[in-house]
Design a binder for these strands. Structure first.
Lengths: 241, 241
DNA sequence: ATAAATGGTGCGGGATCACGCAAGACGAAA
DNA sequence: TTTCGTCTTGCGTGATCCCGCACCATTTAT
């Protein structure tokens, strides 16, 4: 068995190396990459079916890399090893995992035992392992119970990018009024009215900007999500001019 | 000499421990904290004058901790050891360092040699050491040459929090028009017009929201800065109602 | 000292946003 | 089939935003 480790921090990389060695005696070769692009290349060259990688890396993040890797070889098993359980990351991962693929998501704060267990479960047993803390997020984000629905999330991203209502309407093929409807749904979900209608006129908020702020504070949105959205927007702009 | 290490990642913590041992033979005791609040307590108890700490920690970040520590003991020497050189972090640090205090800012990606050198320079020689890469940021952020000035940064934070023009005017004791003036300056600095006036009507941006987006993408703003600003805002709201 | 730059303020208007009201479309439940 | 809920869209309005055109007060430069 071959394992590809993708992690930009050398300390964490060597830690992962040891963990893989200890947890998977059936693993004979370990390959290491320190960013997303390198990971894609190595995964292609080595036909790696077993990858453990960090989500946040400076040059090319884990989600991007995972997407292209899975596109080429959908049965690849990937264990994401991340510092954060931000809803934005969970959404990002959930959005790209192919049907039936085995993957995992464990936090760096998890014990070494947990990491080793996850390694065996995914790479040997082909089971999905998702950290308890992250699991809560996922339920909330995919189920339409309490959290923000997909269409609301979509429009959240659009206003976070700074698009106009009209521009969003064009992009998503909606009427202007529909966009504004969704915006209002979003505002309610994010509880943006709370502080503005509070006392008299004090602390009045610009709803649109406030929505982005609370989304960031609640980690519904983060830098990576924004960055991805920005490149997608740029592509879309290129196509239609 | 006593050194306090503040770092939430155990791997990095032990790495720092070794580095301090190797670089500072005159150091006889090393104390470790794994978050900001613990750091404040330990700094107080041990009267630590030498601290090396991470900036981003989940429970209480380094900037908060450093501020209270420096408030109690302004001659404390602090070496910040951070993953990122975001302008938001640099600004955050620059904003709180007392006059004449020795401090440092080195990136985690720096070589071990560089870290050790910085440790000696700051703790022994009381010199300020700032990573080359970070230095560029600082020049840009403090000098009014190209970057965003302080007043512009202030208003950037306000719109990022989602405040109305009127609310900002009240908060900063300005007229409504002045707020809007500053906003326009900010829009120019952030080059928000670029894409909107580009072609015909395509890709129209909501300037206010777009400004926040590009500030985030340029790392002028980040989660921590926003979080700090949010608590400051909450305090301000408390005072005046 | 006069001139230019810098920063705050008022006025006014066109564009955009937030949103109530209401009508049509579609699938699900009765 | 009827009815209900969700989604989409149009119309209209008041609030807010963006910003050009002044005017004035300080500072800085010549």
């Amino acid at each position: 068995m071959k394992v590809l480790i993708v992690e930009d921090d050398p300390l964490h990389r060597s830690y992962l190396h040891e963990a893989v060695n200890a947890a998977l005696p059936e693993c004979d070769t370990i390959v290491e990459a320190e960013n997303g692009t390198e990971a894609e290349r190595l995964a292609r060259d080595h036909k790696s079916a077993h990858i453990v990688m960090d989500l946040q890396m400076q040059t090319r993040n884990g989600i991007e890399a995972a997407r292209t890797i899975w596109k080429e070889r959908p049965d690849t098993r990937i264990l994401f090893w991340s510092n954060y359980s931000d809803e934005a990351y969970v959404r990002g991962v959930a959005r790209i995992v192919p049907d039936g693929a085995a993957f995992g998501y464990v936090l760096k704060s998890a014990s070494e035992e947990r990491l080793k267990l996850a390694l065996r479960s995914i790479f040997i047993e082909a089971q999905c392992v998702i950290d308890r803390e992250v699991r809560g997020m996922q339920q909330k984000s995919l189920g339409q119970t309490k959290g923000v629905s997909d269409s609301e999330y979509e429009i959240l991203i659009d206003i976070a990018l700074g698009l106009t209502d009209r521009a969003i309407a064009r992009r998503r093929n909606l009427s202007l009024r529909s966009v504004q409807n969704r915006l209002q749904q979003l505002y309610e979900k994010l509880d943006v009215y709370q502080s503005s209608s509070d006392e008299q006129d004090e602390g009045r908020f610009n709803l649109r900007a406030r929505a982005v702020a609370v989304a960031l504070l609640r980690k519904l949105l983060n830098y990576n999500a924004l960055e991805r959205a920005e490149t997608e927007l740029a592509e879309w702009l290129d196509i239609r001019n």
